[in-house]
Design a protein around this nucleic acid. Structure first.
Lengths: 207, 207
DNA sequence: CTAGTTTTGGAATGAACGATACAAAAGGAG
DNA sequence: CTCCTTTTGTATCGTTCATTCCAAAACTAG
C-alpha cells in the first residue's frame, strides 16, 4: 500500500546512466540527474539513497548490458573464433559512432570510470574488477576455441591474448574520445586481429 | 621591481600537475592545489589566473615531458625499429609501476584527461590533439623506417600501425588503472609487437 | 631612507554542491 | 468513505566550491 511510484525505476536508472556516461561522476550534479530522469530530488533520494549509490547501480546496469552484448557476440558458436573477435570489434566501433551526429564519442562508461574513480573508490573498483573478470573469461574462451581450431596462434597463451584484446578495445575507446575517426578504429582493430593469427607457415586448413 | 616571488613557478606547476594526475580535474580543489604546491590562494591566482588555466599549463607541461621522452626512445637510430618500439613499451610499463609501492597505477594524464575532459572542453581537446599528432608522427617515423628495413610488415600502412600502437599504449594505461599486473602489461606489449612483424620468412600472406 | 610595485596571507564573496525536513498529495486497504 | 503508508514538491540545511578583496609584508630603484 501507500502511494505508488509515478515513474519507472528502470527508465530512471537508464537515464542516470546516460548522464554519468556523458559527463563522468564528479561533473554530474544531482540537478543534472533530476533533469535527465525527470524526477524531483525527493524521488531520487527516496529511491536511490545517494548520488554515489545511484552511480554504482547505474554502472552495474551499464556493465551488465554491455558484457551481455559482448558475450552474445562471442558465443555465437556457429562462426569461427576469429570471426567472432572481428564481430566484437565491429560492434565496438558501431557503438562508438552510433551516437546522434555531432561531437566526439563519449567512449565507454567502464573505461571512463576506471580512469576517473577506480583508484580512489574501492566499491566502484570492486564492481569494475568483477566485470573485467567476466569479460576476460569470455575472451579467453573464444581464444582457446580458436587455438584448438588452429585459427589462433598458440605462441601466446589465451590469457595474454585476452588481456591484449581487452586493452586494444579500451585503447580504441580512448582513441575515439580523442577524436579518431571510424577508419582509424578499423585499422586498429584489423591490426589487432593480425596479432591473433598463427604464423603463415603454421596455419592449417580450416574445416 | 616589486616584491619577488617566494617560490619556483616550475616546481609549483610540477606539483599541480601531479595532483591533477592523481585525482583528475574535477576532483581536484583549489585547496588541494594549495596543499600540493605549498602556495597560498593569492599566489596561485596571481600566477596562474584560474584553476582551469593552471590545469591547461600543467597538462602542457606533462605532455611536453612525456612526448619528449617518447621521442628520445624512438629516435635512437642505433637500434632497429622494432627494438625501439619494444623499448617504448618497456618505458611505458616501467613508468606505470615506478610509483612507490601501494595502490593502483594512476595511469597517464593524457589518457585521463582525454576521457574526463576532451568531450566538453574545447581548449583542452585542442592541446591533446596537438600532442597526439606529435606522438603519432614519431610512431609513423619509426614504423616507416622499420618497413624500409624489412623488420615491420608492409601489409598495413604506417599510419594505421601508428594508431594501433598508440591505442595499445592507451589501453595498457587503462588496464593498469584497472588493476592489471606487470606481467599482464608485458603480455599485451609483446602481442602488440607481434602484429608489427612481417609474415614468417618475409612471405606474402594469402587471402 | 623613501617611494613605488608586487607578492602574500587571510578573510570574505556568492554560487553550487549533496542531502534533508516537512507537509501536501495520492492511492490502496479496511 | 476513512485510515495509513508512501511518494512528491518545495524549501532549506550546512558545506564546499572557485574566486576576489584588502591590507600587511617584502624587496628594489632612486
Amino acid at each position: 500500500m501507500g502511494r505508488p511510484r509515478g515513474f519507472d525505476e528502470g527508465r530512471a536508472l537508464d537515464a542516470a546512466m546516460r548522464v554519468f556516461w556523458e559527463n563522468g561522476y564528479e561533473a554530474t550534479s544531482t540537478q543534472d540527474l533530476c533533469a535527465a530522469t525527470g524526477l524531483g530530488r525527493s524521488s531520487i533520494y527516496n529511491t536511490f539513497t545517494s548520488k554515489h549509490e545511484l552511480f554504482v547501480r547505474a554502472l552495474g546496469h551499464y556493465l551488465d548490458t554491455m558484457s551481455a552484448a559482448q558475450a552474445a557476440v562471442l558465443e555465437d558458436a556457429a562462426r569461427p573464433a576469429v570471426e567472432r573477435v572481428r564481430a566484437l570489434f565491429a560492434s565496438v566501433i558501431d557503438g562508438e559512432y552510433a551516437r546522434p551526429g555531432r561531437g566526439r564519442s563519449i567512449g565507454c562508461l567502464s573505461v571512463n570510470t576506471t580512469v576517473e574513480l577506480a583508484g580512489r573508490d574501492a566499491r566502484v573498483a570492486e564492481v569494475l574488477d568483477r566485470d573485467l573478470d567476466r569479460r576476460l573469461d569470455g575472451l579467453r574462451e573464444v581464444l582457446r576455441a580458436g587455438q584448438r581450431a588452429g585459427e589462433v596462434t598458440t605462441e601466446r597463451d589465451a590469457d595474454g591474448l585476452a588481456r591484449f584484446l581487452n586493452a586494444v578495445i579500451g585503447g580504441m575507446r580512448v582513441s575515439a574520445q580523442g577524436g579518431a575517426g571510424r577508419d582509424a578504429l578499423e585499422a586498429i582493430a584489423a591490426t589487432a586481429v593480425d596479432a591473433l593469427l598463427p604464423p603463415v607457415g603454421a596455419r592449417r586448413r580450416e574445416a
